[in-house]
Design a protein around this nucleic acid. Structure first.
Lengths: 204, 204, 204, 204
DNA sequence: AATTAACCGAGACGGTACGTCCTGTCTTGTA
DNA sequence: TACAAGACAGGACGTACCGTCTCGGTTAATT
């Protein structure tokens, strides 16, 4: 996001790197703007000038560290089951990894009290991921592999809502077997009726 | 949690009440121990003596305000669909309500960085609710209304995971219609195969 | 000072001992009632019951550690010079010793803001010492060895005022040579005129 | 003590003024850093940043309120008796005045446990006053009005040691008559022998 | 090339809250 | 029933950060 009025690209980069490193080292809660500034060798004002909140810096730091989002699109092999199973496994894997997991958990937390951050996280971090899944589901729906009356946003939630629930509440570990179980159940919910003669269910 | 060495029941009650009131008034983030102490007419040390963190006080305050948890048990009318639809509607309603919602959202936030609080929230607030749903599901399973090979904890997550996902990410509003949709889809996932002749699915 | 209504002589003694030890270990300023109570194995209330202030406890502890004050009376060898030189040397020695010095310095300090303590220190600690010197001076005066028109309390101050000044302000070390110098000068001030024919000085 | 890195002269002045006012209003013991900060409209950290202790602030406040120390030099009318009598009267007057007296008494107290403060008080507050007296005494000595073998620092103590002794111990009130008495006696001690033919006294 | 205006680092500033310590009083349970 | 033990309300401590605000000292882009 190069801003023409911004002078020091070096500072911007150092800030994002410092934020990303520090959030991994001390956790989001103990992260301070002063520490980021010190680590980045930057005046506090330089941070306050360009970012409205700690969360915004961390979000940018995370996005910068993730690199290009071109690989978000799900493969479409024609096999819905396999494709979705793949993405569920990938998410479970990602959420199970302690490092990244902590940061994004903190971001999801912080957005609860910070509407601007919420918007940012949703539009730039989570939104694209959800949209990618929805896209694949739409293709499957068009191919008649999923119920025609599905609300795709709900469908996505049926797939990954359980994962996030377990991840946030830490009620149980996130394992590949769990990914399979969830995929199975979700697909059962999303699949068309075996006898497609009448799709008059009460689904909206 | 009556402690034999604790002296002033009056103070304990005043603290929990103040915490509950204040978290509703100013929100969790802006809530301070000093404000709780001042409102409760209590020395700060009295709070620090009995609670390890702000989150712990708020959790206790919330539990105290909720009263006895005997009414958590779901009704069992014999009609799984209706009973679960009822609890999903209740949860959606609760999560949609701004006041309570904010507090528990904050607690879920705080537990991410505080394992002790996480344990407390899970065991005393969320655990019982999840267990109540699991109990009802078990009864339905025993009655042959749900798949025999269900992992009940996963089943619970299929029901309410989507709700929490939408609630935390604020991707869309929580409405009664949404509650119905989720119930329908979840039940479809949990129901036994129409032709029970072959339950060989890969569910664990 | 055994009080008939006092129950535990053991407690009283333990408190005074603890106070005396602690003031030597951590200094008066860092001495706390709580520490005295803990060291003495006594409830705080037991201290507050019998002493009005920290200073009072320390004063009593000091007096208890000093033992009987019978040896305060100065010798009267008939030689004023020698007798006073002796007491000045003794005081200088005492003030130069770090341990005792610190405690009594602290007491003199504390009395500045605590009239009750001031009275106690004056009547029970310093008063008797000053009176002993005054007594010896009076004897000398009666023997014609000192000016007849001397105000004895001022005379005492001429002798030991300089010592305390140097001690409190730490402007220079207190040495035996200094004791001699002060004694010489003070005696010169207090001695009768060489030609006693006219004592018309303006001394009151 | 202007520090090149110090920014707000306004704050510095407000702090010193507040300290000076408050110590007069509530006394040194009850004076708190928080109260100074509040009165000065300043953050506590701004005080802690520049002063190591409460005593240091009060000392600076006192020095600031006293203004330039150029008028410390004693007059030299050629009449030692009159000049010294004047300064003794001035000191007695100053010590007898409740306001200033309390503050400097507190400072003398505090320096007992705080070597840094002791150094400050000595060098910046008391030292110059003592030096001024010593200077006058030296002139008198050079003029043959005082004993040639005098240690001037001891001589100063003979003059004002008695005053401070009475002031600190409050054994008796400080009156002009007392000032005269002390001056008379001290001068008698410091004066050269009437028959100056042999100054071989034991004075060092 | 000189001027100038924004940005930069550094960190002081007025504040708020922290968690600790101690005060002097009050309460409980033990001997 | 006097005591040790220590909880209590209160309040100051000294620290950590907040977000704002000067300070010079570089940069660019404009004169």
């Amino acid at each position: 996001m190069p801003d023409s009025t911004r002078r020091s690209e070096r500072s911007r980069h150092a800030i994002l790197t410092a934020a990303h490193e520090l959030v991994a080292e001390v956790g989001y809660r103990k992260l301070t703007i002063e520490a980021i500034a010190a680590r980045a060798g930057v005046g506090k004002q330089t941070i306050y000038r360009w970012w409205p909140s700690k969360g915004a810096v961390v979000l940018d730091g995370m996005l910068a560290a993730m690199g290009d989002p071109e690989d978000l699109a799900l493969p479409d092999t024609g096999d819905v089951d396999a494709d979705l199973r793949g993405v569920v496994h990938a998410i479970v894997e990602e959420l199970a990894e302690p490092g990244l997991s902590g940061t994004s958990r903190s971001l999801m937390i912080e957005m609860q009290d910070d509407p601007d951050l919420a918007e940012g996280v949703l539009e730039r971090l989570l939104g694209p991921q959800l949209a990618a899944i929805a896209d694949r589901l739409r293709a499957a729906q068009d191919a008649g592999q999923l119920r025609r009356d599905l609300d795709l946003s709900v469908a996505v939630e049926m797939l990954i809502g359980p994962l996030y629930h377990r991840w946030l509440l830490r009620t149980a570990p996130l394992t590949p077997a769990y990914a399979d179980t969830v995929t199975d159940l979700a697909l059962r919910a999303l699949a068309p009726d075996r006898l497609a003669s009448h799709g008059e269910d009460r689904l909206e």
